[in-house]
């Protein structure tokens, strides 16, 4: 019995230990470095640049030079300026869209898993409906209806459609955790359901939640880029996806203006790739615990 105890419960003081292991995991470090590096570009560069992304210079279709680091577009826009603003917008859409999806997914998952019964049946049905909805089709229809599309409305639409898998996983884990005796003990201590969910259930799935945030963030960025690329991006601002869309629309490939579409393409790949690498690394760090649950 005592050996049983030590086997079962090396989960303590572990969060600090895990943090240590996380920062020693090369995948986590590399992935985070890529993502944070690009985030810095998106945050700082727009402040330092004098040009506006829509400003047109005399030099049109110019190749990269000291003056225009990433060259200029067919219309004479500075590609680096657009690139920096585009990164900023991508992170914004990712954070907002991923955040909205996370909040909805958590709320639905915890409510369904904790309450059970008919509430669960209903929420489960809702989750499945949203899950099988052809999200892309709905997004296209919605996007064409919105006259003035900004990154915020795009993020909201993305968030509202990408929560179901988080809700499902959170529900499943809550189902097993809510039957632990310590949940009953918290009830016997006069604690209410929201307190119990936040204080007893959530900390036990913290690693899982962290990983979902990362995946939702990356997924939202990718989704936004795809919408932009098919011409449903923001009407009034620049994004990485809309840069690619513009470059394709004006035959940048044929004209040999590779500097127009390569930087945004690489940035999207790097952000999403970096996030996935981080996640794989975190998975390695957390996995014993995930298996345990």
């Amino acid at each position: 019995m005592t050996t049983d105890a030590t086997l079962k419960s090396d989960s303590v003081g572990e969060s600090r230990e895990r943090l240590y292991f996380a920062f020693r995991n090369p995948k986590v470090v590399i992935g985070l470095a890529i993502v944070l590096g690009l985030l810095l570009v998106g945050l700082i560069a727009p402040l330092l640049l004098s040009a506006e992304p829509t400003q047109q210079f005399d030099a049109k279709s110019a190749s990269p030079s000291g003056e225009h680091w990433f060259g200029t577009t067919y219309f004479g826009n500075d590609v680096f300026t657009q690139f920096a603003y585009g990164i900023r917008s991508s992170f914004m859409v990712g954070a907002l869209g991923g955040g909205i999806a996370f909040v909805i997914g958590l709320t639905v998952g915890f409510t369904a898993g904790y309450r059970g019964g008919l509430v669960d049946e209903f929420l489960n049905m809702l989750t499945n409906v949203v899950l099988v909805l052809p999200a892309l089709v709905v997004l296209i229809v919605l996007s064409t209806y919105l006259e003035n599309r900004g990154p915020v409305s795009q993020a909201i639409i993305i968030g509202v459609f990408s929560w179901p898998w988080v809700a499902r996983a959170v529900r499943a884990q809550t189902f097993t955790l809510r039957n632990r005796d310590y949940v009953d003990l918290a009830k016997l201590s006069g604690k209410r359901a929201p307190q119990i969910i936040v204080r007893e259930v959530m900390p036990n799935m913290a690693s899982y939640l962290l990983m979902s945030v990362i995946l939702l963030f990356g997924g939202a960025i990718l989704f936004a880029a795809m919408l932009d690329f098919i011409g449903l991006g923001p009407t009034d601002s620049i994004s990485l996806g809309s840069m690619m869309q513009q470059s394709m629309a004006w035959s940048a490939l044929h004209l040999g203006l590779w500097w127009w579409f390569v930087p945004p393409g690489l940035a999207i790949t790097a952000i999403v790739g970096g996030l996935y690498i981080t996640n794989v690394g975190l998975d390695e760090v957390f996995n014993p615990k995930l298996r345990e649950m």
């Binding site: 105890a5 079962k8 419960s9 989960s11 303590v12 632990r180 005796d181 009953d184 003990l185």
Partner: peptide
Amino acid sequence: FQDPFSSYNPIF
């Protein structure tokens, strides 16, 4: 309850 180990939240 029956199981003392499950009566305590292991992370606290």
